[in-house]
């Protein structure tokens, strides 16, 4: 868990995920280049590099669009949770694809003049007041810098040493990068591209991202659980509590609470993993410990402490069962405090 740093925390699933991701990227590029070469309109003669620039550019846009859709989609359906837990590699892949796109652009459009190619990016389209002369390259450059910072700080070392707050703020920059990317395409390629497919691609992608975020934001408001008994929040009927899994409760104040069932015991802990803020309630009990679905950090149910030799601690909460209904006290205990699990008996079930 946290006592040493590895280059990549591989699991068999992550390796398989990455193989599928790389295969998908290769398939997209081969298809794009092949179809573009065959379908090229009469009178136009794009070079292979120009086609590759477009292939890389559209792929970077599609990957970033998909990454931004993963969070909301995972809230709507469990099918997208594997993507949620592995999107770090998708993000790094997106940066590398965007970097190749930028490198090819600099080489092909700016590399053969007298000016320094990097200087040329900033001065080739100097008309800030014109739609078709706007320096869209600058927008792409800034978006690439943001993607670089995110990819470069995706290692666990950064989350630990920048602190969760600063790290999260830095990585929320993805929305700014996406906005810049949309503007980069709209003020760049779309100004001279005749094929409506690009307009449809941009509009559908950006529209989907906005719609999904608005939908889940509205839905999230209703997830606050108002049902209570003398201040205790209702979690669920005991019959709905799956063994080894949790129900997540979102009090009006404070952190979300994960209420787990392990055989005939019910315990509640903070839903927030100390590692990268992963949703513990979406994990499961493995070897008697709550296991975070993101990176496998573990905590004991009864005291919220990681097993030896690890030292992470999360808050615990009191629970009880009345007439087959599970309740949790929304007041957290100090992280690492032992809290008796509630035992399911014939009397309370």
């Amino acid at each position: 868990m946290s006592h040493d740093y590895k280059a990549v925390q591989w699991t068999p699933f992550k390796k398989q995920f990455d193989r599928w991701m790389l295969a998908g990227i290769a398939l997209y590029l081969i298809s794009f280049v092949g179809v573009s070469a065959v379908m090229q309109p009469a009178g136009e003669s794009f070079t292979p590099i120009q086609i590759l620039i477009r292939a890389m550019g559209t792929l970077a846009f599609l990957l970033l669009t998909f990454i931004l859709c993963i969070g909301p989609l995972a809230r709507l359906t469990d099918r997208f949770k594997p993507f949620l837990y592995n999107r770090r590699h998708l993000g790094v892949a997106t940066f590398l694809v965007a970097l190749i796109h930028a490198g090819l652009v600099i080489l092909w459009y700016h590399g053969f003049g007298d000016l320094n190619p990097l200087v040329s990016i900033f001065v080739s389209n100097p008309e800030y007041t014109s739609l078709n002369g706007f320096p869209f390259e600058v927008l792409g450059f800034v978006a690439l810098i943001i993607l670089f910072l995110m990819a470069a700080t995706s290692h666990d070392f950064w989350n630990a040493n920048l602190g969760p707050g600063l790290w999260k703020a830095l990585h929320m920059g993805v929305y700014l990068a996406y906005g810049l990317l949309v503007a980069h395409v709209a003020l760049g390629a779309l100004q001279f591209e005749k094929d409506p497919l690009y307009v449809i691609l941009l509009g559908t992608g950006a529209g989907t991202v906005c719609l999904l975020h608005i939908t889940t934001a509205i839905g999230g408001v209703h997830k606050v659980n108002p049902a209570s008994l003398n201040g205790w929040l209702k979690v669920a009927d005991l019959s709905d509590m799956q063994d080894g899994r949790a129900k997540i409760i979102r009090p009006k104040q404070g952190e979300a609470i994960a209420v787990f069932r392990d055989g005939d015991k019910i315990s509640a802990v903070s839903n927030v993993c100390r590692h990268q803020g992963g949703p513990l309630g979406e994990g499961k009990i493995v070897d008697g410990c709550i296991t975070c679905p993101w990176h496998g950090f573990q905590y004991r149910m009864e005291d919220g402490c990681s097993p030896d030799p690890f030292t992470e601690k999360i808050a615990t909460y009191a629970t009880h069962i009345v007439h087959g209904i599970v309740y949790v006290d929304p007041a957290p205990n100090t992280p690492g405090t032992y809290q008796d699990p509630t035992v399911i008996t014939h009397n309370n079930a």
Partner: peptide
């Protein structure tokens, strides 16, 4: 946690771009 063998060479190389940025 990053002292000595706690952070192998490959992991140290991975954090270099972030430090540059």
């Amino acid at each position: 946690a990053a002292k000595g063998k706690g952070m192998p060479l490959r992991a140290r190389l991975l954090i270099m771009p972030g430090v540059i940025g």
